[in-house]
């Protein structure tokens, strides 16, 4: 097993939103800090640093994780997807558009984490109901919206994905 010295910095290489990226990190550096301050991917937000609020949620090799409970060194050699990857050409995806349409955000600080959780979760669930969406979203805290718009947007995005799938399959 690779041994890392606590006081020294190590080169971390990963695939960020499909592109190679790298920087230096001490073993104790959080993935959230590494993404934001070493790689400049400031779309991932830090709300509590103890894993409750969900604002820092990113995908690590496809699975959603709290970047504040993950060390940067754990992401070495792996794929990390963040909110910046959802609209690579500057064109909002269906989920993002649904958020805008339903006023599912106000200050926008919790939004990236919620988008990343939903993006991962809706991948595997063609027809979620409201109860399932509320259960999934209970891993995120939002203080502005009262959640109604977020739930509505998630339901609409799921419907849109379903319609899109049908179109492609047929």
């Amino acid at each position: 097993m690779k041994r890392l010295g606590a006081g020294s910095r190590h080169r971390i290489g990963l695939t960020l939103n499909g592109r190679e990226a790298g920087g230096w990190a001490e073993p104790r550096m959080l993935l959230s800090d590494f993404l934001r301050h070493a790689l400049g991917a400031t779309g991932t937000h830090v709300g509590c640093e103890h894993g409750v609020c969900g604002a820092c949620t990113v995908r690590l090799d496809g699975a959603p994780v709290r970047a504040c409970l993950t060390l940067a060194v754990q992401a070495d050699g792996r794929r990390v997807d963040t909110v910046e990857g959802l609209a690579p050409e500057g064109e909002l995806n269906d989920l993002q558009k649904a958020f805008r349409r339903h006023h599912a955000l106000q200050c926008g600080f919790c939004t990236p984490g919620i988008l990343m959780s939903l993006d991962a979760w809706l991948d595997g669930r063609p027809a979620p109901d409201e109860g399932e969406i509320r259960e999934l979203l209970s891993g995120h805290l939002c203080r502005c919206t009262g959640y109604g718009g977020i739930v509505a947007a998630a339901l609409e995005a799921a419907r849109a994905a379903r319609a899109g799938d049908v179109g492609e399959d047929d």
């Binding site: 779309g43 958020f99 805008r100 006023h103």
Partner: peptide
């Protein structure tokens, strides 16, 4: 109206103090 603020925030391009 939809909000002019939202596109940037949804893309992770908001500019908060730590950014």
């Amino acid at each position: 109206r939809e909000r002019v603020e939202d596109a940037a925030l949804l893309m992770g391009r908001g500019r908060y103090i730590d950014d």
